[in-house]
């Protein structure tokens, strides 16, 4: 619906960046208990389609805030974000929800899986509002579970999965509607080294068919796998 047609996208890919973060500033206003905080200052980033970009920086540097701004969830105070030439914050609230469904796949640090849904249902969650048959939704969800190596655990609840499996399930949910942009907020942050590697392998696989990945991480091993590393310090690109 919101996506550009194939020829237009090809044209866009060749001539301009897929994600453009333009002069973005974010200030959290004073709320009586705390003073106003400027989290991001004049951030400019361009990411081309298919690129795997890692955003690194110390705690409180504004990494997660920037990710939620790119994720169409957090209105910047100034500046704008373009994804596939769409001015994300120029969209009305409900259209922005459609944009998130069509364009973005989120992977949260804590995975945020629905504890009352099994793996298949969790993977299917972004398709709940899509107008397609239940069979098609099921097939697509099984397909992504297979991609992340969880096909045999489709009927398990999240608490019956290991940490690494939960991370892979979160990725499955993020990619089930085949979004062109994956946003990941420290996806291995809560995992041990071995399971962290498991999850990163999945990201690399995803990136192969030119899915753009924008990942926030603290982990230098993870960032070493990226095409590009962007450092952020005190809300500014270093």
């Amino acid at each position: 619906m919101l996506r550009l047609s194939a020829p237009m996208r090809l044209c866009a890919k060749l001539t301009m960046s897929f994600v453009t973060i333009e002069k973005v500033t974010k200030v959290y206003e004073a709320d009586g208990e705390s003073a106003a905080v400027k989290v991001l200052s004049d951030v400019n980033i361009e990411i081309v389609e298919g690129e795997f970009v890692c955003l690194m920086g110390p705690s409180g540097s504004g990494k997660s805030t920037l990710l939620t701004i790119v994720g169409a969830m957090n209105h910047p105070t100034t500046g704008r974000v373009l994804v596939d030439e769409i001015d994300v914050y120029g969209l009305a609230d409900e259209r922005r929800a459609d944009f998130r469904r069509e364009y973005l796949g989120f992977v949260f640090q804590q995975h945020h899986l629905m504890p009352y849904l099994n793996s298949l249902e969790n993977a299917m969650l972004p398709l709940a509002t899509a107008s397609m048959s239940s069979r098609e939704k099921r097939e697509r969800a099984m397909n992504v579970l297979d991609k992340v190596g969880l096909a045999d655990k489709a009927s398990r609840l999240p608490n019956q999965l290991s940490g690494g499996e939960q991370g892979r399930l979160a990725i499955a949910r993020a990619i089930v509607n085949e979004p062109p942009l994956i946003l990941a907020d420290e996806p291995t942050g809560s995992l041990d080294t071995k399971t962290g590697h498991e999850v990163m392998e999945v990201f690399l696989k995803l990136n192969a068919p030119r899915q753009t990945v924008f990942m926030v991480t603290h982990n230098p091993e993870n960032s070493a796998l990226a095409h590009r590393i962007i450092n952020i310090v005190d809300g500014r690109i270093a």
Partner: peptide, 16 residues
């Protein structure tokens, strides 16, 4: 709150 936030993040409209 968290669950609703996740649903909104993955593209659920307010009406959903």
């Amino acid at each position: 709150t968290k669950e609703i936030g996740v649903l909104r993040a993955i593209g659920f409209r307010r009406t959903h």
